[in-house]
């Protein structure tokens, strides 16, 4: 994909991410996040939540992977702005939707929303740069 293929208002294809215990734990370990609420159900319940839930670094990873799946390696990810909401608990599904919010020169802003059955898990803006990669 190149910058000429992109217009404001364009939608990204949806992506459904099953939130299994394996997905949560794999993400937590891959991001070196050993907080017990992300891998130990008994510890999570001891802190008043029903089960383990996804850590932020994994959420950030999925947001950027979602945009990267769409834009390909010609674009550089320049910045991300993430607002967190409903936790991703085991057994849920997070569905990503996205839309191009702005195109300015070689810069593209993409709005991303990841919804689960409780509500918005994440609302994010990912800024892409289609100028030369470093």
């Amino acid at each position: 994909m190149t910058i000429t293929d992109i217009q404001a208002g364009q939608s990204l294809p949806e992506l459904a991410v099953p939130i299994t215990a394996s997905a949560i734990v794999a993400g937590a370990i891959a991001t070196d996040d050993f907080e017990d609420v992300h891998h130990d159900k008994a510890a999570a319940q001891g802190k008043g939540v029903p089960d383990i839930f996804m850590n932020i670094l994994t959420t950030n990873g999925f947001v950027q992977r979602y945009v990267s799946d769409w834009c390909g390696s010609a674009a550089r990810i320049a910045a991300v702005d993430i607002k967190l909401g409903a936790p991703n608990f085991v057994g849920d599904t997070m569905t990503f939707t996205g839309e191009v919010a702005q195109v300015e020169g070689s810069r593209v802003a993409v709005k991303v929303r990841g919804r689960n059955r409780i509500g918005d898990h994440v609302v994010a803006t990912v800024n892409l740069d289609f100028g030369s990669a470093q």
Binding site: T58, G61, V63, R65, S73, A133, Q134
Partner: peptide, 30 residues
């Protein structure tokens, strides 16, 4: 693998260079 990210610039030298990077690069979210 955990994120399901298949962008080759993170694991393949040739793909990274083809995309203008000096070599393999890490995912920015890392």
């Amino acid at each position: 693998e955990a994120m399901g990210d298949t962008n080759p610039i993170y694991t393949d030298e040739a793909a990274a260079k083809a995309a203008g990077h000096p070599g393999i690069v890490a995912p920015p979210a890392m």
